[in-house]
Amino acid sequence: MSTVEGADPPVLEARGIVKRFGHVEALRGADFAVHRGEVVALIGDNGAGKSTLIKVLSGAQPHDEGEILIGGRPERFSSPVDARRAGVETVYQDLAVADDLSVAANLYLGREIMLGGLGGLLGLLDKRAMRRGAAEALEQLGVRIPRVTTPIAMLSGGQRQSVAVARAVIWATSVVILDEPTAALGVVQTQRVLEVVDRARDAGMSVVLVSHNMPQVLEIADRVEVMRLGRRTARFRAADATTDDLVAAMTGALVTEPEDADLR
């Protein structure tokens, strides 16, 4: 890609984020950026600040200093609801799906389609529309589940994860953040989830992927941003990087901050 620098601001950007927990500085001026239609992996050793940065970006924790920009506009998130309103959807490691509800109900949880007219005024759901919408959306993302009326509890781990990711992709308007989406999955199930990520990118969605799995990161991501000690210390184009490079950056042996233009 050879877009003119500055013509296309990142869909999500963090600048100089500082986050303190008491005397501990978890983030010390962390930067991060993801552009439209891009899958960016965020990696770093345990304690590097990935999770904290994700929580700040998803509105789960307010930051102390620095700014978050959505499409170049500064935003202030005081809750995950704010972040979602700004188009940022997050899939947390613990998934946060309601096991007893159906797949369709989970996809629309908190954003139900209501019946028109009197039924809507009475607070009645348009279940049929939600079933149809859910089935179409899952079909588009290539998520295979037996039926949209199946309770989540009856799905396999991979299917649940796929549904959780799909839910985020469906509602996100700019960025989907995935925190270790495949950590607990087998090989086949992992592929399924990564396929969903691929399709989301193809549809123009931006994806932030937190992962420990270096080969996976290089396979799925367009770019990799490495964190160490609460800061971004390296950026790579996935196509140019090797697992060794990533490990070196994570351990502090390699520091590289190339110009934006070189990365795109």
Partner: peptide, 15 residues
């Protein structure tokens, strides 16, 4: 049902 199934999920869903 959602609250009873997973209170945290319900909260994060904006309920």
């Amino acid at each position: 049902y959602a609250m009873g199934s997973n209170m945290e999920a319900a909260r994060r869903s904006g309920i």
